[in-house]
Simulated scan of single mutants.
Amino acid sequence: MLSVMFLLGVVYAAAILILVRMLGRAWPIGVAVIVAFAAFQVLTSGRLAVRTMGAREVTAAEEPELHALVDRLCALGGMDKPTIAVAESKVPNACALGRSKGSATLCVTRGLLETLEPNELEGVIAHELSHVAHGDAAVMTVAAFVGVLAGLVARIGLRLVYIGGRARGLWHIIVVALGFIALSAATWFVSLVLTRSLSRYREFAADRSAAQLTGNPAALASALTKVSAKVSGGGGIPQVDLRKAGALNAFYFAPVSAAKTTAHHLLSTHPTTQARLDRLLRMSSQL
């Protein structure tokens, strides 16, 4: 993870340096826009994700068993209890959102509560609490920031090419726009590969932390098998629920769309289910 973060830092520093050189005297405006966009993304990403998921905060009176489980695991892990929310979705899954440990929200779907046995649910909740304890949502938001910005710059560049192509004598706009598009596309792709790699490592780390906290890697493996099978196979889940879930694929316990080839795996947010199961099996034998 440290190696990937170092490479991301090198890529981002190079991209920003080239962007400043290309902007010339206007570079302070460009830097101000980058800082403003970064602040907006960090401050709003958690709330937007919860809204996208369609989750609502639930009290201990509404979901007593879920709250009791989270209370016990937080006590075992020595951490503050996050806000708990439930999404009325048939897709069995869970995710941890928020820019900091103090503002974290643990979201589970109704499908997850109905699908898993208590010890399996405990493993999934422990996995998500590990993400909260390690600030994974904030780390991934920051890591993906320049990649997201590069994608937006590429779209603006394409718009400038369109405008320059329709107007006469604006060939210089097209040249500049093509330069921005090339820089942005290269930054976006390298950033995507590195951030997805970082995401996969952090999923392994969360699995390991959950197995250590509960002392039951087998239950987590069983939950992973059930959730992956139901999500990837449909399991009677409405397509509209699957499409909505796909928007938050990177945050979920198990991905809604899994990698099918080696090339897809390089761009996957999660390790393969088999790779995660193999590690949990090794932990189970060690314990």
Rank of each mutant, 00 (worst) to 15 (best):
A60S: 14
A219W: 00
A104T: 10
L112P: 10
L121G: 01
E65Y: 02
D207L: 01
R25G: 07
D207S: 00
V148F: 09
L43S: 11
I34W: 10
R279S: 09
A223K: 11
R276L: 06
L280S: 02
A185T: 06
E114P: 01
L248R: 03
G135I: 05
E88K: 08
A206W: 01
A218K: 08
N216M: 03
A60H: 10
I237C: 02
A263V: 14
L69Y: 04
A250C: 01
P217Y: 01
V231S: 14
L213P: 04
F180G: 01
K81D: 03
G9F: 05
I125E: 03
D136F: 09
Y12V: 05
D136W: 11
I173G: 00
A68C: 01
S199M: 07
V58W: 04
V161H: 07
R21C: 13
G135W: 15
T272V: 15
A13W: 11
A259H: 03
L194E: 06
G98T: 00
V161A: 07
S228A: 06
R110P: 06
A94K: 07
T269N: 09
I174R: 12
T105W: 14
Q286A: 14
M53E: 10
R168Q: 04
T272H: 14
A39L: 15
S89T: 08
K101V: 12
V176H: 00
L281W: 12
L23G: 07
S222H: 09
A104L: 11
T141Q: 07
A36C: 07
